[in-house]
Amino acid sequence: MDNYNLDNLNIVLEDETLRSESSRPATGKEQRTSTSSARIIYDVAGTKPKGRPAADASSVKREVRCCKKPHTIGTWNVRTMNQGKLDVVKGEMSRINIDILGISELKWTGMGHFISDDYHIFYCGQENHGRNGVAIIVNKRVANSVLGYNLKNDRIISIRLLGKPINVTVIQVYAPTVGADDEEIEDFYVSLQQLVDAIPKKDTIVTRGDWNAKVESKSVTGITGNFGLGDRNEAGDRLLGFCQNSSLFITNTCFQQSKRRLYK
């Protein structure tokens, strides 16, 4: 599905210009220097938090402004959300006041949207196999701002939020691991670029998830800061290329992270 939908409602308005319809793409120099208009990409993975079963990544909170109130967002690689673990996730969202939570490695089959207590869950998995899978969960404070959602595939999902003066598109990803074949990695980035290109040009884009990539601590002007971890690998090169093409900045490289967390 390439179009946003909410009960079959198309929420890309007629007068909105998509990113792919701009007059010309920015040059590499323009993309590197135009930090004022750069979209934001969040990416955190970590060690298993104590007392949180089947969770591989600790969530990280950031604030974005939607309408007049700040909203806190996070991302979590849960490894699986079967066997009642949705209740664990909702409990953690409530405990640390997360309004929008992206989930990686969901391992649910099918795709859709449902409501559980005060939370709206948008999810996308494989049709017949409980592998991969992504989801975005929002609490009732945010639910009324959701304009629509895009169930791209079992590795990419997004929702669009009503904001003032501009709307916000939130993307959650679960990238292929380093051991994946080249075709799978290529398909992932092609699909992700297609989704980004189909987002209205004026939207603020916030992308989070498990990228399974290392971008090292060396700063790349307009794309990373000085606090990436590890030695840059081939997956890191691919991630940096995507960020440059899409005017995205990896914000988690701008500050020293806790020692118990691992940046991927």
Results as ranks from 00 to 15, higher is better:
Arg39Asp: 11
Ile205Tyr: 01
Gln256Arg: 12
Leu192Trp: 06
Ile136Asn: 00
Tyr123His: 12
Ala45Cys: 10
Arg32Asp: 10
Ile166Lys: 10
Glu183Val: 11
Thr169Phe: 10
Ser191Arg: 08
Gly133His: 02
Ser58Asp: 05
Asn252Tyr: 03
Ile40Arg: 04
Ile159Gly: 04
Asp117Lys: 15
Thr27Phe: 00
Asp237Cys: 04
Thr80Tyr: 04
Thr109Asp: 12
Lys69Gln: 10
Glu105Asp: 01
Asn77Val: 06
His120Asn: 10
Asn97Met: 04
Ile115Trp: 12
Trp108Asn: 03
Gly130Tyr: 11
Ser23Val: 10
Trp76His: 03
Asp43Val: 09
Ile11Lys: 05
Asp237Tyr: 02
His120Met: 12
Thr80Leu: 08
Ser23Lys: 11
Arg141Lys: 12
Val215Gly: 00
Ile40Cys: 01
Arg24Pro: 01
Asn212Ser: 11
Thr75Leu: 07
Asp154Arg: 06
Gly230Cys: 07
Thr35Met: 05
Ser145His: 11
Phe122Tyr: 15
Phe242Ile: 02
Arg24Ser: 08
Arg32Met: 11
Lys85His: 12
Pro49Cys: 04
Gly241Thr: 15
Arg208Leu: 15
Tyr119Ile: 06
Arg261Ile: 11
Tyr189Leu: 10
Gln83Val: 02
Lys201Trp: 07
Tyr123Ile: 05
Gly241Lys: 12
Phe114Met: 09
Asp203Ala: 04
Arg141Leu: 08
Val215Ser: 00
Ala55His: 10
Ile205Asp: 01
Leu86Tyr: 08
Glu16Arg: 03
Thr204Asn: 13
Asp87Leu: 11
His113Ile: 08
Val60Pro: 00
Thr221Pro: 03
Val88His: 14
Gly112Ala: 10
Val215Tyr: 01
Val78Trp: 04
Ile137Gly: 05
Lys50Pro: 03
Asp7Thr: 11
Val215Cys: 01
Glu16Ala: 04
Val206Met: 10
Tyr263Cys: 06
Val215Ile: 13
Leu248Trp: 04
Gln257Asn: 08
Asp56Gln: 14
Asp99Met: 03
Val196Gly: 02
Leu192Thr: 08
Arg238Ser: 13
Arg95Lys: 15
Val146Ser: 01
Met81Cys: 14
Val178Ser: 10
Arg155Lys: 14
Pro200Leu: 07
Glu21Leu: 10
Lys107Met: 07
His120Asp: 15
Gly28Ala: 06
Gly112Leu: 09
Arg160Leu: 02
Ile136Phe: 01
Gly236Asp: 00
Lys90Phe: 09
Glu186Trp: 02
Lys264Asp: 13
Lys259Cys: 05
Asn10Trp: 04
Lys164Ser: 14
Lys69Ala: 07
Glu216Thr: 13
Leu162Val: 03
Asp203Cys: 05
Val64Gly: 01
Ser191Val: 05
Ile96Val: 14
Leu262Lys: 12
Lys152His: 11
Asn150Gly: 07
